[in-house]
């Protein structure tokens, strides 16, 4: 979007009456909008801080004195969440899955996107639209057949199965986004590399991938957050509670605490699950915002 000043409005807006009092309006609006901004900010901060406070309370305090501070911090809640609640195991499970699913998604996504963006061949458009269309499919429709397909090849309730599913369901957006990104890269460098005798593979791995780094980083962040938060697919495909990933593990914990009534441990588990995300968010806030909104802006 160059800063060209040729504006093609549909029709010129009716001239506004200049007799308004912009200052008055400004002052009232200022108070109102500031108040509203702060109100929304508090609506985000208060529940989060409150759950952190609650995680240090006894179950009796949580129910009896929801607005008060904990009399003495209950570190037991955290111990219980970590050991009985298995939060530690869920973390490791999730990391195990994501090391492979993220690198797989990025590698396969970049390969497909690169070919679709830079090579002319029959069926190019068809493949592209098959991927892009997948962004709209409601995943509910596929759940049960997917369950059966994995069951038939013995990959139900296994991490390799879950990893492949994560990759497959992350591909539509990844391919869609990276195709657009590879198209924006200059052709001159690629041609020069080919003249210098680089093959197609070397061109991709040594020239194009490094050039596509900003796009790859943005979409990697997008996928990390998406797969970290994935709930529905593991819920259906991983039925052994021992193997649960973090979101699913928390949900199981929530369900169990409903019976056992140990709210403190549930909130401690929730806070434990929130902490790494929070730290990463504070550090990489700009990159995360850019990564998550990148696809929408393209």
């Amino acid at each position: 979007m160059a800063t060209q000043t040729s504006i093609e409005t549909r029709k010129p807006p009716a001239p506004a009456a200049p007799t308004r009092e912009p200052r008055r309006e400004g002052a009232v609006m200022n108070v109102f909008s500031h108040a509203f901004l702060w109100l929304w900010g508090l609506m985000v901060i208060i529940p989060v801080v409150w759950i952190v406070l609650s995680s240090f309370k006894t179950t009796r305090e949580i129910a009896g004195d929801p607005l008060g501070l904990p009399a003495a911090p209950q570190w037991d809640n955290y111990a219980s969440a970590w050991t009985n609640g298995n939060i530690g195991t869920y973390f490791i499970n999730t990391l195990q899955v994501m090391v492979f699913s993220i690198s797989g998604t990025m590698l396969l996504g970049a390969m497909a996107a690169y070919v679709l963006a830079r090579y002319e061949f029959r069926g190019n458009r068809l493949v592209y639209f098959a991927f892009a269309g997948g962004m709209m499919f409601p995943v509910f429709l596929a759940l049960f057949p997917l369950f059966k397909i994995l069951d038939n090849v013995g990959m139900l309730n296994t991490y390799p199965g879950l990893i492949l599913v994560y990759i497959a369901y992350s591909l539509p957006f990844t391919v869609f986004f990276l195709t657009a990104f590879f198209r924006t890269l200059p052709t001159g460098v690629a041609e020069a590399a080919l003249i210098d005798g680089a093959g197609h593979y070397r061109l991709f791995f040594q020239v194009m991938l490094p050039m596509a780094k900003p796009g790859l980083i943005a979409i990697t962040i997008f996928n990390i957050i998406g797969q970290w938060n994935q709930f529905l697919l593991p819920l259906v495909l991983m039925s052994d509670p021992e193997d649960a990933v973090i979101s699913q593990g928390l949900a199981n914990l929530a369900l169990r605490q409903g019976y056992e009534g140990d709210q403190g441990a549930l909130f401690a588990g929730t806070v434990l699950a929130m902490v790494p995300i929070f730290i990463a968010y504070v550090i990489f806030q700009r990159q995360i915002q850019a990564g998550l909104t990148a696809g929408a802006i393209k």
């Binding site: 709930f231 979101s247 928390l250 995300i277 915002q289």
Partner: peptide, 15 residues
């Protein structure tokens, strides 16, 4: 304002 976007729905649900 953006923070809830990075929280998982499981966490948001419990909260």
């Amino acid at each position: 304002f953006f923070f809830p976007q990075v929280l998982s729905l499981a966490i948001i649900g419990i909260l």
